[in-house]
């Protein structure tokens, strides 16, 4: 039993991350509003909410749009149901900025907003507009409940953070284990270290496959394409290619001892190059590549404690599962090696 404790612990961590990650409700949010333009004069827009309570909290409902310095409230709001409402704006002022954020506040949901919900159309944009009157007052705090943040575009897929991202952590971890065993093999020449390095690399490759496939699916329905050119994605693809090449190298040399030596050298060299590319460069290049490039994801979610409470256990749990898989792989490989030695003797 004592040998199993970390396996049981990581299984429990993964299980709890799945259960809590899927059960926790998503915070109320505003996925979109149509049309996405505000015209000069009267514009009527339909706002679609998600997990919101427009009808239930109709008395306290407040709607407004702002572009940073000017704020406008609709002169008419018609609630259709809990997740739909129609708002009619009348805007004729001069403005400083073209993008409007949409805000909705009520007693149950608190304040929810959709950034850059509307683009102004035909309004007069000037450098120093007159300040507008404040039309919003007495905001409600909303009910305090455990939920995950409802980001625009991501919506429910924010839960993927608990599956997709830990698989990359697990990959980096077992690749690091593989690196350590490669170093040990080169310095000591112990065949068991070589088997361990290979097994760890194999498990790492499995988690890289998971990371690539899940990331691709996620990207398709949030960014709109199966693959986008971004330093981190390219780094992941390179890591995948490097470890495929590692196994090609192994299999192309017949002498076991030599194959281990060559693969060990390549493992160390490639790991350092990959780490440089995946971890260091996207951060250094960020100043020149803002926005979707780099890794904007974490800086946004980091602030949310609810998500973090599930995310960290998920990371440790998946790393533990990866180590478990690595151990199984290694034990089977050692058995196979011993059998081969016995047959040869």
């Amino acid at each position: 039993m004592s040998h199993y404790w970390w396996k049981i612990l990581s299984a429990i961590l993964v299980l709890s991350s799945i259960v809590f990650g899927l059960m926790a409700p998503l915070a109320p949010g505003i996925p979109f509003a149509t049309p996405d333009q505000l015209n000069n004069g009267v514009t009527s827009v339909t706002v679609v909410g998600y997990n919101t309570h427009f009808a239930e909290a109709e008395e306290s409902l407040q709607v407004w749009v702002t572009n940073g310095d000017a704020t406008f409230c609709p002169y008419e709001v018609a609630v259709v149901d809990d997740t739909h409402l129609r708002a009619t704006f009348s805007i004729t002022e001069e403005l400083a900025d073209a993008f409007f954020d949409l805000y909705i506040n009520n007693a149950i949901d608190g304040t929810r907003h959709l950034p850059s919900a509307f683009l102004q159309n035909g309004l007069e944009v000037v450098d120093n507009p007159r300040p507008t009157e404040k039309c919003v007052s007495d905001l409600e705090a909303g009910l305090d409940a455990y939920n995950f943040p409802n980001q625009p575009i991501l919506n429910e897929t924010i839960r993927n953070l608990l599956f997709h991202v830990p698989s990359w952590f697990a990959m980096i971890f077992v690749m690091f284990v593989s690196l350590l065993f490669s170093i040990q093999y080169l310095s000591k020449g112990d065949f068991k270290a070589d088997i361990a390095a290979t097994s760890a690399a194999k498990v790492g490759l499995i988690f890289a496959t998971i990371g690539l496939a899940t990331g691709s699916l996620w990207a398709r329905f949030t960014w709109g394409a199966w693959w986008v050119s971004d330093p981190r994605l390219n780094g992941a693809a390179i890591a995948f290619l490097i470890y495929l090449a590692y196994f090609v190298l192994r299999s192309s040399v017949n002498d076991e001892e030599k194959a281990g030596r060559l693969a060990g050298v390549y493992n160390i060299f490639a790991f350092v190059m990959m780490l440089l590319f995946v971890m260091v460069l996207p951060r250094m290049s960020e100043s020149l590549h803002p926005g979707v490039g780099g890794n904007p994801a974490f800086s946004q979610y980091d602030l949310d404690d609810n998500l973090r409470m599930v995310f960290y256990p998920a990371v440790f749990g998946w790393i533990g599962m990866a180590m478990w898989m690595y151990q199984l792989q290694r034990r089977a490989s050692v058995l196979a090696y011993n059998r081969l030695m016995k047959l040869n003797a």
Partner: peptide, 25 residues
């Protein structure tokens, strides 16, 4: 299918992919 209900099916898809790869292992 995928854009419905706050894109929850994307999460299901991710879970299915993970399960399939691990079963393959």
């Amino acid at each position: 299918t995928m854009y419905a209900s706050g894109k929850i099916n994307v999460v299901i898809g991710v879970g299915v992919i993970m399960f399939l790869v691990l079963v393959g292992y």
